[in-house]
Each structure stands twice: as C-alpha cells, then as structure tokens.
Design a protein around this nucleic acid. Sequence first.
DNA 1: AATTCATTGCGTTAGACTGACACAATATAA
DNA 2: TTATATTGTGTCAGTCTAACGCAATGAATT
Lengths: 263, 263
Amino acid sequence: MSKSPALPASLKQLLVKGNDLFLPSISIDCVIFGFHENTLKLLLLDSAKSNKWTLPGGFVLKSEDINNAAYRVLLERTGLKDIYLKQFDVFGQPNRTDASVHKTTFEQYGSKIPKDHWLIQRFVSVGYFALIDYTNFSIQNDTMHSANAWKAIDQVKHLTIDHDHGAIIQKALDSLRTQLAYLPIGKNLLPKKFTMPELQKLYETILNKPLDRRNFQRKMLGFGILNKLNETRKGGAHKAPFLYTFNDKKYQKALKEGLYGSW
Amino acid sequence: MSKSPALPASLKQLLVKGNDLFLPSISIDCVIFGFHENTLKLLLLDSAKSNKWTLPGGFVLKSEDINNAAYRVLLERTGLKDIYLKQFDVFGQPNRTDASVHKTTFEQYGSKIPKDHWLIQRFVSVGYFALIDYTNFSIQNDTMHSANAWKAIDQVKHLTIDHDHGAIIQKALDSLRTQLAYLPIGKNLLPKKFTMPELQKLYETILNKPLDRRNFQRKMLGFGILNKLNETRKGGAHKAPFLYTFNDKKYQKALKEGLYGSW
DNA sequence: AATTCATTGCGTTAGACTGACACAATATAA
DNA sequence: TTATATTGTGTCAGTCTAACGCAATGAATT
C-alpha cells in the first residue's frame, strides 16, 4: 500500500535485467541538434522531476555495435532513421557520473537500487552528436523522463544541467563548428528543399556570427554539392528566393573527403 | 613439474586482480608514431609469440581518468611524459576482440583463463594516437609481449596484425592527415632544433606526397609558430640550412584554436 | 686553391580565392 | 500603383597559392 506510483516496466527491466543486457561501464550520450525558426535547438530531457536536464542517452547491448547503439537511442527518442550521427569524444573522468540521479528516479517509485548495482557504477560515456530536421519530427516520451523538450542553444546555459552534460554539450558544439569548416552540413538539419538564406541562417546560427550573403552563396555554390531548382519559395513578403536541394552523391563524397583538402 | 616457464607476476596480477583493478569492457589502444630517417614508423608489439603484431594498449583503472590511462600506457611503454596524445575514435564492434589471443598468451605459461573471466569478455576500445621523437627514446619491454619494435608505416601492411588493429592504425593515420590540415604538428615528433627540410620531410611522409620546398617554407613561416635560430646545421655535403624551434606559446595556441579558422 | 654540384635562401608571376560593397529585379504590403 | 525589404548578379582590390628562377653556400673533387 505504497503511495508511490508503480514502477514502470522499462525501469524495472533496467533494474533487473540491465546487468545481463548491457555492457558494464559504458554509456552513450547524444547531443541532438535541431534547427527551427532560425534558432539552433537541443533535445533535452527533464530528468525524473529532479529539475535537472539531461542528454538523451542509453547503454550498449552486449552484442551490439556501439555506433548502432547510438542510432538505436536516436531512433527510440526521435523515431528518426538515417540521420547523420557523429562520435565526437569520450568522457571518462572517474567522478563524472553521479549515481544519486538514478537513486532519486527509483525512489520516486518507492524502489531502491541495490548497492554495487550495475547502474550505479562508474560509466565512461561516448558522446555523439546528431543533426535533425526539426519539422518532420515528433518527440517521443518515455517513462524514465517526464518531459522531452527542445531548448534554444543560448537558453541552455541558464538551465540546470545534470552530470557533466553541460561540458558535453559545449564540446559537441565546438566539434560541430570545427566540422563546419571542412565538411558539408545541413543535410538532415534542413527540409529537403531549402533556400540559400535558410542555409545561411543555419551557418550563422552555428557559428554565432553574421556572414555576407553574396560571399556565402558564392562559396557554397563553389562546393558543388547543391542542386538549384527551378522553383522559388513564395510567401515571404519580398522577392522569392530559389529553392535548392543537396546533391546526394556529391554531398556524401564531400562528407568522406572533406571540402578542401588543403595541403 | 610443468615444462612451461613460470607465469610472470604482471600476468598473474592481470589474471587474479584484473577484475578488481580495471573497468570492465573498456580498453585503450595507442597508435604511437615516430619519425626517423625520413620514415614514419609505428611502435608495435610482437604479441606473445603468436606471430601477430598488436598495438600497445591497456586498461583503465577503476578510479582513473581514461585520458590518464592512455598517458599511463604511453609512459609504461616508452618512458615518455608530456607527449601529444589525441583520442581519435572508439572501436566498438561486438566481434572486434578475439579472446583466443589472451588464451594463447596464458597457455604458454601453462595457465588457463577461467570461462567468463574479465579478460575474455567483449571490449570496446578507445583509440589514441601519439607523436614522439624517435631519437630520445628507448623501447621498454614487458612480460606480456616478447618484443617491441618500430615498423615503417609502409611495411605494416605486410605484417600480420592482430584483431582489428590494422583498421585502427588506418584510422589513426587518416586522423593524423586530417589534423595536419588545421593543426600544427611536429612538436614531439622532431628534435628540439630542426631544419626546414626536415620539417618538410615529416609533412611529406605523413601526406605521402611531395611538396614544393619554397611554398612549404612560406606557408609554414606564415603560421607564425616557428623561431628561426641564428645557427645552421653543418655536416650535410651542401649549403647548411638554418635551424628552427617551435615557439611554444604560439604552438599551443594554434593547437587550441587551429591554424586557419576558415569561416 | 680552384672548381664542381647538390642544396638552400629568397624572389617573381599568373591565376584563384576572399572580403567588402554596388545595383537592378521582384514579391508582397500599403 | 508605390513603397519596401529582400534576392540575384556582378565588380574590384587585396590576399593566397602553385609553379618556377636564380644567386649563395658548404663540402667534395680535382
């Protein structure tokens, strides 16, 4: 006759079978970027009513490729497949995880995690970042976290972030910016058809600085990864800009070989 | 009255205490590059007389930062400190490790690893690459591997490489080449004082293509990370080239901020 | 001691790229 | 119809890059 709600099945499974299902010591954190209304956003989870926000993450099945685990986490969380997902760093400080979060989660339901349980050991986390199209996406909620939400990147620093997830986010952003310099970007972050000003806004938002419209266009077209369509986007109160799509083959090639090559 | 030699203490410790000392499921592999006689070399271990070559690696102590674990492995293996060490990827395919190697190692000494032992579970490995000065370095041997050796990078593909270490080496080389485009390099790979032709050879070796002598010098000096000394290196049968050192402050700054910035 | 010769230091030039800006065309709103 | 903000296209000077020229130098050769 406890006043606590019943322990959800997914949490119970984690508690009882986690040790059998997952690799010990290794976790995954995903920094999921979305782009909407000229703002870069992050998909965050409101962790177990503790008023702390966390990154969507998970564990690696015992016979699962670690990259697939990251794709699985992304799929479970967003319902999206075939997304650009990039492993950007490993976070392995011994004190980076704080078992008290898990304890709190389970205590809500009147459950206790045994001492030395798989879940409250030290975890080394592999960080991935993903870029997704904000528009054709619906947030998937789960039982462990009461709310999932998109947060504008510049609001994030005012939130209470769990663990070292703030540092992970910062590192992901740095990696994203660095990548921008030598890899194409935007494929999964923008709708299929987009305008040059939209693409530019994306770049400006990630880099957090304005770019010259005309030079941006010249450089972008120079990369040779865009198809110019014979359509324009009407509806804006001004001259209708042309629509573009990414040239898939050339985009993929540029992803592999880089945009420049330098030396 | 076994004919096998006695099990070395370090191996015994791994067998008996490994489970207590180290994190499960996580290992570290180091791709250690050296530069000597205009050749890029790799430090490899002749693994347990099995005629397979492996990368120097190790495990993470239970309360040790994973980056420190990599530095520790490097120190144990080479005796070198303060080396540039870069985490470049995570290797997490479920079938990437092959427990038979460890079995063979212990069977040599007439020891058997228990089933389900910590050591023969699946490991996810974090790859680091290091760049060291070939000259002031002495190879440290250990008990688990009969021989450590420098192997020229283009000989490596003719060797029998253990596990997925061949793929790890390839990925390290790719990362090194990519880094060359936007980060300074050479600090630990060359002696303190070096000539411009020597530095150029290093770049040419890593990139595996010739560079124009005069353009290389102009570009390199343009980075502003070199100090030109008032000495020349005599002894070569020709005009004596000037000696340079790296400007430590500017070198470190360039490591953090990159050499260009592009956008 | 003079000569040879591979290598180094310094320089030039044409073409490509970059940053800053001008001006006409156009889709909606007033 | 006019006004206005925005887009498409273009220019131009400064910078960077690739390719190459030539004199200076240090040891080896004669």
